[in-house]
Amino acid sequence: MMVKTIFSGFGGQGVLMMGYSLAHGAMSAGYHVTFLPAYGAEVRGGTANCTVAVSDDEIASPIASEPNNIVVLNTPSLYAFQNRVAPGGALFLNSSIIAVESSRHDVRIFKIPSSEMAEKLGNPRTANTVMMGAFLKITGLVPPDIYLSSMATVMGSKKKSVIEINRKAFAAGHEFLKIAE
């Protein structure tokens, strides 16, 4: 098994955090894992992205020329990455921000209004964690309890209340797709 996922959005939306927490969770679940951030000459307000590979065998390349999944938090990211996804793969879109439709018809598309959901929960900055709830619901890459404990670990010294609201955000994303389906 080898699953590669690209996470992408504006700098500041917590894109790297999504990848980092998934990589940590997958490591805790016993998988081989690599996390590769894009480190180009980025500009403020520009896009940020990272690639996570999860496998039960050694990972040759941490780069995904044909990812199985993409998780996109803004429209430029959709345009940048939608055509790379392998046929039969999955697109996870933050539909609060992305108003356009994907041009792909050979992939599964999941729209999650994560910014609005995060705002309702009282912290708009948890939109990324809402997405992670939905992402793990569909992919099943890491069991939720292992992911949540990894999330708390990578958030490190952050306040307990921050971790608590992220748990709620994760649950909301996880529940959302159940309802939608």
């Binding site: 980092y20 990589a23 490591m27 081989h32 894992v33 690599t34 996390f35 590769l36 951030p37 480190y39 941490p62 780069i63």
Partner: peptide, 10 residues
């Protein structure tokens, strides 16, 4: 190289 430097792994 840059990839080894930037990549995270266990």
């Amino acid at each position: 190289d840059g990839m080894m430097g930037q990549m995270m792994e266990p």
